[in-house]
């Protein structure tokens, strides 16, 4: 789904790998993995299980949270007050490891999230971060020129609205609660879920009502 981009193989770095022969880093990874398994630190089964667990996480989970917040004012309030607690108690999404700060877009404020120091991201509710989130271009520029960076995503924020950047430097993880588009009032949750994309929950896009 999110891989519909023409630059599908543009990494956050230049050359190496792709589909060719294994390079040094792949060998180093395999060597580390096999030695740790031989030493009994973990098993191959442990690895399969954890990979499956991470694979299950995707922006669909975040979209469910957003759709619920749009349709249930009480939940929205609890979500904004204590994100992790509301998600774990009310959304049937387990093991939200980090504390979640939910930031709400309004007619006056647009929020966007970056991690300038590494790539902190709410994997447990959005899945693995996209390459652009980890790129040096995004990490370096999103704090100083957020409007310019958003433009590169095709997102133009009205100059009258405040743009609020969140640099995810420590123990919090962030979910942007996007604005519900006009004309979708009264839609059921399962229909709303379909218009909430990953980028709208990081703040690099706004939700549009599709047909």
């Amino acid at each position: 789904m999110p891989h519909d981009d023409p630059h599908a193989h543009d990494h956050d770095h230049a050359p190496i790998e792709a589909d060719g022969p294994q390079g040094y880093y792949q060998h180093l990874a395999a060597a580390t993995r096999s030695l740790l398994i031989e030493k009994g630190v973990f098993s191959a089964g442990d690895m399969r299980a954890i990979i499956e667990k991470i694979d299950e996480r995707s922006p669909a989970l975040g979209a469910k949270i957003v759709a619920r917040a749009w349709t249930d004012a009480g939940f929205r309030e609890r979500l904004l007050a204590e994100g992790k607690k509301a998600i774990e108690a009310e959304m049937d999404i387990d093991a939200v490891a980090a504390d979640i700060v939910v930031v709400e877009n309004t007619a006056d404020v647009h929020n966007v999230v970056v991690c300038t120091l590494c790539s902190c991201y709410p994997v447990f509710i959005l899945g693995r971060p996209p390459d652009w989130y980890k790129s040096y271009a995004y990490r370096s520029r999103a704090v100083r020129d957020p409007r310019g960076v958003l433009r590169e995503f095709g997102t133009e924020i009205d100059p009258a609205r405040e743009v609020r950047v969140h640099d995810s430097t420590a123990d919090m993880r962030y979910l942007v609660l996007p604005m519900q588009p006009e004309g979708t009032e009264g839609w059921p949750e399962d229909k709303l879920v379909e218009i909430v994309t990953r980028d709208t929950m990081v703040g690099t896009a706004e939700v549009r009502a599709a047909g």
Partner: peptide
């Protein structure tokens, strides 16, 4: 009016 929030 633009702002930036940082954990410190």
């Amino acid at each position: 009016a633009d702002t930036i929030d940082i954990e410190i």
